[in-house]
Design a protein around this nucleic acid. Structure first.
Length: 282
DNA sequence: CTTTGGGCCTGGACGC
DNA sequence: TGCGTCCAGGCCCAAA
């Protein structure tokens, strides 16, 4: 369930370990996840130096020399594990899809049991035209995203606000969990049509989105401290959610009796679970 | 044009 | 115990 905060955490962890390093001994296992890896994938990564590691929406972008960019999506279950130099070689796992060493002797593996991840290689010039990047909306923390532009992107939409926030063209990086959390914090019903959120409610929703993401990134960052130097999995951190996956539990903002009200409700919108409190969200 | 829904993939939870 | 069924999730694409 990696969404923006988890992807950000993984990207920061990888940056700590890999920036400035050269990739050596790159190998793939079966060479496909949701889609086949690009042609000569391992060969093209071999010997490249890591210049910088960034995140765009839920994608990790590893910028290499020769203007090559390694694009990674973690899907649902994608994980990186970094084994520092001189640490024991990890056991083989059938779901290890990519492995490589760095020129300082670390060993890195990408593991994805459900294979919903994506690997691709692109040239720097394709950063805004690549199929998976071209239509992405603004980053939630982009200062250019203000109340007016956010409101304008919701205006006229006939889809529920829950679905609109999952649409990466509206705002990039939110997934099913943080959409529920942000709508709860903003006190907005997930069933409300996006068009009716434009205006005053949008000015409540945008800070709520930022608060929820910021708190989760901070929680992730605190796990990174322990990981550097240890043989660690990147991006998995304990985070407690207020409404997500808490059907029937008490809403922290309500003093109502759960036995009477049923507590936090679950509903399905566009095939996906939404969790909310009908009393706090209108 | 916009919005909806199916398919991809597989481990784990659940029911019989 | 062992089997089958369903679900979760992000994203693309076809269909309405």
């Amino acid at each position: 369930m990696p969404e923006l905060p988890e992807v950000e955490t993984v990207a920061r962890g990888l940056a700590t370990m890999l920036t400035g390093r050269r990739l050596v001994h790159v190998a793939t296992t079966r060479g496909d996840l949701r889609a086949p890896f690009p042609k000569d994938f391992a060969l093209r990564l071999e010997g490249r130096r890591v210049c910088e590691i960034k995140r765009r929406a839920k994608y990790i972008l590893i910028e290499l020399d020769q203007d090559l960019i390694w694009l990674i999506h973690l899907g649902m279950t994608g994980k990186f594990t970094v084994h520092p130099p001189r640490s024991p070689q990890p056991l083989d796992d059938p779901h290890d899809h990519v492995r490589f060493d760095t020129d300082d002797g670390a060993h890195v593996r990408f593991n994805d049991p459900r294979r919903f991840g994506v690997m691709d290689l692109l040239h720097r010039s394709e950063l805004t035209t690549h199929r998976m990047l071209a239509d992405l909306g603004p980053e939630p923390f982009d200062p250019a995203l203000d109340d007016d532009s956010f409101s304008a992107s919701l205006a006229g939409k006939r889809t529920p606000i829950k679905s609109a926030l999952l649409d990466q063209r509206v705002i990039a990086g939110l997934g099913n969990i943080y959409v529920s959390e942000a709508l709860f914090l903003a006190g907005i019903s997930p069933k409300r049509l996006a068009g009716s959120v434009a205006g005053v409610r949008a000015t409540r929703l945008l800070p709520a989105i930022r608060n929820v993401l910021d708190a989760a990134i901070k929680a992730g960052g605190s796990t990174l401290r322990d990981f550097a130097g240890a043989s660690g999995e990147l991006g998995y951190f304990q985070h407690r959610f207020t409404v997500y996956d808490r059907e029937g539990k008490k809403c922290p903002g309500c003093d109502c009796n759960v036995a009477v009200t049923g507590g936090i409700q679950r509903l399905v919108q566009a095939g996906r679970s939404t969790f909310y409190c009908p009393r706090k969200q209108r």
